[in-house]
């Protein structure tokens, strides 16, 4: 009985040896995929993180502010922009109405019940 067990174990060891002597070859397509993954992983570690991108954008704005004279200048710039918009929408009398310059005329008609609405909507009038 013991001899049978020893024999079985020896045969099993022989099978293990044969298994070691015949390793499965690495498929070429798998080797290629693994090497491609290495390049992808390397690129991932070099791409800027979202935090790094935020720091970059903040840096650009800081440089702009310094160029125009800091926070007081930014405040003055904002105020000037607001005045410019106001003048454009409601100009003083000595300035032309910008709406008229582009051909807009105020109408008091109610387009909903008129032919004009159909024209605007492109519907066929029956």
């Amino acid at each position: 009985m013991m001899a049978d067990t020893d024999k079985a174990m020896q045969e099993l060891d022989d099978l293990f040896t044969a298994a070691r002597d015949t390793p499965a070859p690495l498929p070429a397509h798998l080797a290629k995929a693994i090497m491609s993954d290495a390049l992808i992983a390397r690129a991932e570690t070099q791409a800027p993180t979202p935090a790094a991108k935020t720091r970059l954008r903040a840096g650009i704005w800081q440089q702009l502010m310094v160029a125009i004279g800091g926070l007081p200048a930014v405040g003055g710039l904002a105020a000037a922009c607001a005045v410019g918009v106001w003048i454009g929408l409601a100009p003083p009398s000595f300035l032309p109405d910008p709406a008229q310059l582009v051909g807009y005329t105020e109408s008091t008609s109610v387009p909903y019940e008129s032919f004009n609405l159909a024209t605007v909507l492109g519907e066929e009038v029956q």
Partner: peptide, 10 residues
């Protein structure tokens, strides 16, 4: 790749 992958695959 050629050192480590074959063992891993096997």
């Amino acid at each position: 790749t050629m050192r480590l992958s074959p063992r891993c695959f096997g």
